[in-house]
Amino acid sequence: MHWARGITPAGETITGVIIKDTLEPRAALGADKVIGAPISLADLTLLPPVVPGKFIGLWNNFKAAAEKNGHEHPAHPLYFLKPDSALSGPGATVAIPQSAGRVVFEGELGIVIGKTCKDITPAAAQDAILGYTCVNDFTSLGVLFADPSFPQWTRSKGFDGFGVIGPVIATDVDWRDLTIRVLVNERERQSYPANDMILSPPEIVSLLSQDMTLNPGDVIACGTSLGAAPVKAGMEVVVVIEGIGELSVVMG
Rank of each mutant, 00 (worst) to 15 (best):
P83C: 03
I35E: 13
R189S: 09
A28S: 14
V173E: 00
D21C: 01
K54P: 07
G142R: 10
N60L: 15
D218E: 06
S85P: 02
K232A: 14
V250K: 14
I56K: 04
W153G: 13
G91Q: 05
Y132H: 01
T213V: 13
A123P: 05
D211R: 12
V238M: 15
L130D: 02
P74K: 08
E188C: 08
S88K: 09
D174A: 00
D211K: 10
F145E: 15
S40I: 09
G30Q: 05
I244L: 05
G107K: 04
I7F: 01
E242M: 05
L87M: 06
L109G: 03
S140V: 01
G166T: 01
P48T: 04
T139N: 12
A28P: 05
P167W: 02
L23G: 02
V250N: 11
G161M: 10
D127N: 14
K63D: 13
D147I: 09
M235V: 09
G6L: 11
Q126S: 08
P201V: 03
S191C: 09
W59V: 14
T213L: 11
D196S: 08
V34P: 08
R176W: 07
V168E: 03
V219F: 08
A10G: 11
A10Y: 06
G30L: 08
W153C: 14
T22M: 08
E72T: 12
N136T: 03
A95C: 14
I96E: 00
E24P: 08
I39S: 07
Q152A: 15
V239M: 07
N185H: 09
F150E: 14
G234R: 09
D160S: 13
P38L: 12
V50M: 05
L87V: 02
G227V: 01
N136I: 07
G53T: 12
T22R: 09
I241W: 01
A100W: 13
A146E: 14
W175Q: 00
R102G: 04
I180F: 00
V51R: 10
P148V: 11
I220T: 07
L46Q: 00
W3K: 01
G107M: 06
P216R: 04
N61I: 12
W59S: 14
W3Q: 04
I14H: 07
F105H: 13
I241K: 00
G158T: 13
V135I: 15
W153H: 15
I18R: 03
G110N: 08
F150I: 10
V237F: 09
F138C: 04
K232M: 14
P52L: 02
L87T: 04
D147G: 09
A170L: 11
T139F: 11
W59K: 11
A4H: 01
N185A: 11
